[in-house]
């Protein structure tokens, strides 16, 4: 397994800490004029998603994490696993429920998702920033409300619930920002 020296630390570098792959968010080199140098590092644990700060002695080495982001198309779920495919090689890979987590509600067939692999196994699934989903249920809104004040909850085909303007109706397809979970616009079919 490759090692990184603290000299190589920078945002985006993937290292192992407490047996878990981590992404370095920030690295600050601290060197008192007279004294030992340290690296103060902010990192995100990629499985538990915890953000923590850690101090290293400069010159120390840490194990690198074999972490890779790939763009794969979502195919289907068999109830236990979520199956994705590389559209170039047609190679398929299955992610478990833990890797998909809350993003389950944004998985749309054929959408390109970012799958983070650790030693070849999916650890996180990130949906595209915007997805288009059909509304399966929402209260009939008042005619003439176009300002979108207040809004109402709408249930989407994946089970996700988002707030939509009053004029949006059941059966319509809407665009949602998956990062904030907010309604963006209606989609013309």
């Amino acid at each position: 397994m490759a090692n990184y020296s603290t000299n190589e630390f920078k945002g985006g570098l993937k290292i192992m800490l407490d047996g878990e792959p981590c992404n370095i968010l920030e690295n600050e080199y601290v060197k008192p004029g007279k004294g030992q140098a340290f690296n103060r590092v902010k990192l995100r644990k990629l499985i538990s998603n915890k953000v923590l700060e850690k101090t290293f002695r400069s010159g120390e080495t840490v194990e690198s994490a074999d972490v890779l982001d790939t763009e794969l198309a979502y195919l289907y779920t068999d109830g236990e696993f979520y199956h994705f495919m590389n559209n170039d090689t047609f190679e398929q890979i299955a992610a478990d429920e833990k890797a998909v987590g809350d993003n389950l509600k944004w998985l749309v067939e054929n959408d390109m998702c970012t799958i983070t692999l650790w030693n070849g196994t999916p650890i996180t699934v990130t949906p595209p920033n915007f997805v288009e989903l059909e509304i399966t249920e929402t209260d009939p809104g008042l005619k003439g409300d176009t300002a979108g004040t207040g809004g109402k909850p709408a249930t989407l085909s994946t089970g996700a619930v988002v707030r939509v303007p009053l004029f949006v109706q059941t059966g319509e397809v809407i665009k949602v920002d998956t990062r904030s979970g907010e309604y963006v616009s209606r989609v013309q079919k």
Binding site: K34, Q36, T55
Partner: peptide, 23 residues
């Protein structure tokens, strides 16, 4: 001060003071 460093016992007293001072 939530300074998380492995094996702090291997740092000498001046190293610890300097780290505390810097952070």
């Amino acid at each position: 001060h939530k300074i998380d460093i492995d094996n702090p016992e291997t740092l000498n007293n001046d190293d610890i003071l300097q780290l505390l001072f810097s952070v």
